[in-house]
Amino acid sequence: MELAWYALLGLFFATYLVLGGYDYGVGLLLARRDSPAARRAALNAVGPFFLGNEVWLVAAVGILFGAFPTLEGELLSGLYPAVIGALAGVVLVTAGVQLRSRPTAEWARAGWDRVVVAGSALAALGWGALLAGLLQGVPLRADGHVDGVTHLFTPFVAAAGLAMVALVAAHGATFLTLRLPAADAAPVARLARRLVPVAVTAVGAATVLGLLSDRVRGAAQQPLAAVLLPLLLVAALLVARTALGRGRPGLAFAATSAALALPVALVGAALWPWALVSTVEPAGGLTVADAAASGPTLRLLGWLALPLLPALLGFQAMCWWVFRGRIDGRAPVYW
């Protein structure tokens, strides 16, 4: 029961990183000195999906609160700086994307675009730091509270945050390759091909720093998973690069999507059976079973989730289906 909910939590957060990840990637790419029309087109490629993407985060936190209340409190307050960074980023992107086209003046729109760029960078940094913070363990004391926030400031966390920024940028460019009008796709595909090696380098650097860190090695309960999954991530990125080179943006997008989902699987698998590993007291961590809500709550939520999940996924799929394919210049644009 706990395992099913833990998997569901992971699924929602990973899907958020995949879907929200291309929002942030497209957001970062607004930093290029493109024409206003090109920036507008990039945002409208995301357009109809934007609201439905972000809500995976809202639902993930809902599941976290409902099914793993204890984890919710310790995780969010224990990794406070990473969480508020990500949160501020999410808020800035939400407001920036939806409001940027409300003013008509070009300077005002450019200003909002900068807000989106900054927000996207913050969000990616924050989520990367959060996942890294989990991987290196937290100073959870016997009374069940995390001590201070300085434990978060390590080279590994910084490298993981930057790696996430590079990942979403490559993912966003790949998404645009898939969605922009065919005539505009070629330059963006070249950009994506250049960004993938950057992401590989960043992920590699984070992995090396992680392997060198005592805390990460100490926290990893399943060393095999902790080594295999980063390798898989790099492999996914290499597939993406090849696919981009051969003009197969769909395959490339699937590969970068996998690259964004894998870090979540990595954290879940490497720490299992723990949800939070304590760096100060060996037995002081929080196991997935301990973190879960009690039986009646999980059963209630389970009866609810069973019929609901197909409906949720169905309506999301409807959204992807209705707005599938490349955008054309004639479609009404709103963002």
């Binding site: 609201l51 439905g52 972000e54 809500v55 995976w56 809202v58 639902a59 936190v61 809902g62 599941i63 609160f65 409902g66 099914a67 939520l301 609810l304 989730a305 609901l308 409906a311 949720l312 309506f315 999301q316 959204c319």
Partner: peptide, 14 residues
């Protein structure tokens, strides 16, 4: 709160 996010927000935004 969990029910709210799954039943309401998820679909509302979509």
């Amino acid at each position: 709160l969990a029910i709210e996010t799954l039943v309401a927000f998820f679909l509302e935004s979509t």
